[in-house]
Design a binder for these strands. Structure first.
Length: 884
DNA sequence: CTTATCACG
DNA sequence: ACGTACGTGATAAGG
């Protein structure tokens, strides 16, 4: 078997990968999608080809590189987008790290290098594979040289392969004749003129018959279409020039050492580190853990499993200024505690023997208690998750790595110790949880060997302790110190209290509600099947799309890449005409209620008869909190049938619910932040904002606004908060874009300062790369720099929305902290149990109703001092349905 | 493990 | 021309 060499057209493949994949960025906002795509294609081809040699050719001057497909279509030339340009050095660095030979040469394009190397290698008796996205290279195909052209269609990459034979099949000319073909037809993307009046069809015919431009010219009189004959006669010199331009130089003086191109182990340590830096998590798995991964200089950790040693440790910890703590626990089961006294003295205390779960949690509580420490600050990666295992509500000073890192960059999906070490400890690389434990659960890891667990616990405690200083510095640097200390840190305890109290749910009522739904669901199912003429899975959009749009022939064609869209807004337009659609919509609604709410909630009722949701503080990009397992922030309310579910959420005996929500907080925030006098005035006079907007926008007297006008104006107000676009508004109101644009224009005429304010936000976002809330919370917006219109537009809307949504989030967080503090300090039995973005639910002891109402009103209204009042609506009830 | 759908603010 | 409203989370299908 002969040897094989793989030659890659570097820029071309990078380009393919860039346009074929969504624009990936790592958590630092570095664009990495093209590099990732390149590596995936590379690995795939290597597996298929198994070559002995590999080399990648690059043009020396990247900026001359173009996206040919795009240009061929547009007929214009655009510079390489910045997102792609910055990835060129990255892929070269990656290839070099993998020991892959890169070839460039002054004065020659990558094409020429590839052509030359292909020729030389073939002469040596090798098989050659050229990987490129550029069809020009087809001229290089022979019996031994195969050109592989990857094509990305809807995210799937297929590869077209060409030996000489396949070129002939597809283009009716031999590979070298491709050059002659181009000489006649030209190639706008490559600036090859060709000759006028000759396109692909004619050119192919001529070359297939006469073999070359020169021979065709000799037989000029025989050339068939007259137009072509005359053109060739007149522009023969142009044809020859084009031919020269199209021909790839197969004899360039490139120096090439086959030894250096020998394919070795790609999975080197350097490549591993780079993959890690770029966050190619999927690729990391390819690396052989022994060869590639750097020797983890595991820090020296100590285990302590005897009672007196443990006591000593905690005593010592309590006397310090700072101590790093981690709790290794999962689903109520505790495995051990990590304790970092200083950077060199990190301990793991396993649950073992006398050191029981209870004992350890008790020690942790003592450490956290306010009374126990004078000047001690407990540093942890995630304080709230630790508090879950600790009693009491009177805690001392803490530092929370996760919350701090979240404020500094709220766009990350997680805040693990290895990421934080990398980012805030000078690129320090620690072994990640996955590297230590794999995909094992804690329990499995514990049973197998506690080594990984020990390391993880210690690294967590260590990182929490050591990264405190740089994180605090960064918070001060970015003017977020106050948001951190005055809003987020106290919020940890507020949320902890809410999670621990939970909310009482009537399980039996939930069950009967579900059964009631089931009766109707079964009816609808039969009804739908009957109308469809067959039984099918109504829950499958795929099956339903086929039934509706193919079998029953409803109009309203394709929408998604996988088939027909059967989303509610599409179906609703069809509902008046087709009864089956109405039934499907009702079926959807009921099954949603059944599975997500009736069944879903029942599953998470704990033994105390209450649901304990988790409120996540480090998820959203804007500063809101989110709720999981279950999500209690999306319990139905808009439709009556769904709203009934709220009747199962009840206060304990002797308690009632007090529900308080901010009235139009986001619009009020907008009024304040923009300083628009008209809007401020309107709120001061307690006017109906939507009606007022309607009267201004539609130029009608205030008291003659029709309900439709008011509804439209309300949508405009919402649109403003979301970062208005005429398309979005038109979609929402089912009007034309022109009309929507009209509404917006008149809105901005009415409230000129709002226009200025929003423009300023976008400008600030573009200039600084982030926008801020009233309290200084930041939201980075990397999309604003994108060359992609859609992405950039998204960035602009985000720039307009985030400060408003985020400021509202800040305000209610402040209110929560204040309410929590007042309830505690005034020794009340009432407690905060839920937050739903602009709403707080308090399980109120009946004798405290008056006092709690006053606290709620006072603290919610007083949470921020705006130029308009913060109005609060409050209701009382024996369940959530009544109280809302 | 991603996609479509739908619940909330 | 581009083809979207902002922010979330849970469920069921179907690779």
């Amino acid at each position: 078997m002969s040897e094989k060499i793989l030659l890659i057209d570097g820029h071309s493949i990078l380009n393919r990968a860039f346009y074929g994949l969504p624009d990936l960025t790592n958590s630092e906002g570095k664009h990495t999608g093209a590099v990732y795509g390149f590596l995936n294609i590379l690995f795939r081809i290597l597996e298929e080809e198994k070559p002995q040699y590999l080399t990648v050719a690059f043009d020396l001057h990247a900026p001359t590189f173009r996206h040919k497909m795009y240009e061929a279509y547009k007929g214009t030339r655009k510079p390489m987008p910045e997102e792609l340009r910055e990835q060129v050095p990255l892929i070269q660095e990656m290839l070099t790290a993998m020991g892959v030979k890169i070839v460039t040469m002054e004065g020659y394009e990558a094409d020429d290098i590839l052509g030359t190397l292909a020729g030389r290698s073939e002469k040596k008796g090798m098989d050659v594979t050229i990987l490129s996205g550029d069809r020009d290279l087809l001229q290089l195909a022979t019996e031994k040289v195969m050109i592989r052209l990857p094509r990305t269609v809807r995210g799937k990459t297929t590869i077209e392969d060409f030996h000489a034979e396949q070129v002939l099949e597809k283009y009716q000319v031999t590979p070298p004749q491709i050059v002659d073909l181009k000489a006649l037809m030209g190639d706008s993307a490559d600036n090859i003129p060709g000759i006028p009046g000759v396109g692909e069809k004619t050119a192919t015919k001529i070359i297939a018959e006469y073999g070359s431009v020169e021979n065709a010219h000799e037989h000029l009189e025989e050339i068939k279409p007259n137009r072509a004959k005359e053109s060739l006669r007149e522009h023969y010199d142009l044809a020859q020039l084009s031919k020269a331009l199209a021909a790839i130089n197969t004899d360039s003086p490139v120096e090439f050492d086959y030894e250096q191109a020998k394919l070795g182990n790609l999975y080197t340590q350097g490549a591993f580190l780079l993959c890690k830096r770029l966050e190619f998590k999927n690729l990391l798995g390819r690396f052989d853990s022994e060869n590639a991964q750097p020797q983890q200089q595991l820090q020296e950790f100590f285990s302590c499993s005897d009672l007196s040693g443990c006591e000593t440790l905690f005593d010592k910890a309590a006397k310090q200024e700072y101590v790093g703590v981690s709790l290794v626990a999962e689903q109520g089961q505790v495995f051990g505690v990590g304790l970092a006294l200083d950077s060199e003295e990190v301990y793991f205390i396993p649950v073992e023997g006398l050191l029981t779960e209870n004992y350890l949690c008790g020690k942790l509580q003592q450490l956290l208690q306010k009374s126990s420490h004078g000047a001690l600050t407990i540093c942890s990666m995630d304080v709230k998750s630790m508090l879950k295992y600790v009693d009491g509500e009177d805690f001392g000073e803490i530092f929370d790595t996760g919350v701090a890192a979240y404020l500094l960059n709220p766009l990350k999906s997680s805040y693990t110790y290895d990421d934080i070490a990398k980012e805030y400890l000078n690129g320090r690389l620690l072994p990640s949880r996955e590297e230590l434990l794999g995909k094992m659960t804690l329990e499995k890891a514990w049973q197998q060997s506690e080594d990984g667990l020990v390391n993880m616990a210690c690294y967590m405690a260590y990182t929490a302790l050591v990264s405190r200083e740089p994180l605090c510095e960064a918070l001060k640097e970015t003017d977020m110190w106050r948001v951190y200390t005055e809003i987020e840190l106290p919020l940890i305890f507020t949320l902890n209290s809410m999670e621990k109290w939970g909310i009482k749910v009537k399980g039996e009522e939930l069950k009967s509600y579900g059964e009631r739904l089931n009766i109707r669901i079964a009816e609808l199912e039969q009804l739908i099947w009957k109308q469809a003429g067959e039984e099918f899975n109504i829950n499958s959009p795929k099956q339903m799309g086929i039934i509706l749009f193919e079998k029953l022939g409803l109009k309203g064609g394709k929408k998604t890449k996988t088939g027909y869209s059967t989303a509610a807004d599409i179906l609703e337009k069809l509902a008046p005409e087709y009864p089956i659609v109405k039934d499907i919509l009702e079926y959807r609604q009921l099954t949603k209620l059944k599975s997500t709410y009736a069944d879903g909630l029942e599953k998470v009722i704990e033994r105390d008869g209450r649901i304990h949701s988790t409120f996540n503080q480090t998820i959203t990009a804007t500063g809101r909190i989110s709720s999981t397992e279950p999500n209690l922030q999306n319990i139905p309310v808009r439709m009556e049938l769904g709203r009934l579910i709220r009747k199962v959420f009840v206060p304990e005996d002797e308690y009632v619910f007090l529900d308080a929500d901010y009235s139009q907080i986001e619009l009020r925030v907008l009024a304040h932040m923009s300083g628009d006098e008209k809007l401020i005035q309107a709120y001061r006079e307690a006017q109906d904002i939507h009606r007022l907007t309607a009267s201004q926008v539609f130029h009608v007297p205030f008291d003659q606004v029709t309900p439709l006008q008011r509804r439209n104006a309300k949508a405009v107000n919402f649109g403003i908060v979301y970062g208005i676009s005429s398309f979005g508004l038109s979609q929402d109101l089912s009007i034309t874009r022109k009309e929507a644009a009209d509404y917006i224009e008149r809105y901005f005429e009415t409230y000129p300062k709002i226009k200025g304010f929003l423009d300023e936000l976008v400008e600030q976002g573009k200039k600084k790369g982030y926008v801020t809330t009233m309290f200084g919370r930041r939201r980075p917006i990397p999309e604003l720099k994108s060359s992609n219109f859609m992405q950039r537009s998204f960035g602009e809307r985000v720039a307009m929305n985030s400060p408003i949504q985020g400021t509202a989030a800040d305000i209610i967080k402040i209110a929560m902290n204040r309410v929590y503090k007042r309830l505690k300090e005034e020794g009340l039995r009432s407690r905060l149990v839920l937050q739903v973005h602009d709403e707080l639910l308090i399980e109120t002891y009946k004798e405290e109703i008056e006092q709690v109402s006053a606290i709620l009103e006072e603290e919610m209204k007083g949470a921020a001092n705006l130029s308009v009042e913060l109005e609060v609506d409050m209701h009382q009830g024996n369940n959530w349905y009544e109280a809302k």
